[in-house]
């Protein structure tokens, strides 16, 4: 097993637990929604760039994915 993959996996699980704790112990507010969606974006990026090895791809794919994801999450945060 690659050490980098183990590290990324550990971070992903820690962020999932953090998300669940935030949702359970904090009242829903614009800040909490932004925090939860921000953590989701970070986890999404870790999976794409590390597990799917997008970090090795042409910048076109990295920029396109970042813009698409960013637009969707920003719309969710603003509409909420």
């Amino acid at each position: 097993m690659q050490k980098s993959l183990i590290f990324v996996y550990g971070v992903l699980i820690a962020l999932t637990i953090a998300t669940a704790l935030i949702a359970n112990f904090m009242l829903v507010s614009p800040f909490v929604v932004s925090l939860i969606m921000g953590l989701a974006v970070f986890k999404f990026s870790l999976v794409t760039f590390q597990f799917m090895e997008l970090k090795k791809a042409n910048s076109f794919w990295k920029v396109s994915l970042t813009l698409t994801l960013g637009l969707i999450v920003l719309l969710i945060i603003f509409l909420k």
Binding site: T19, I36, A40, K43, V47, I72, I76, K80
Partner: peptide, 10 residues
Amino acid sequence: LLLFPVLYLI
């Protein structure tokens, strides 16, 4: 990773 927070949490 997108469905979970939007459907279950926010």
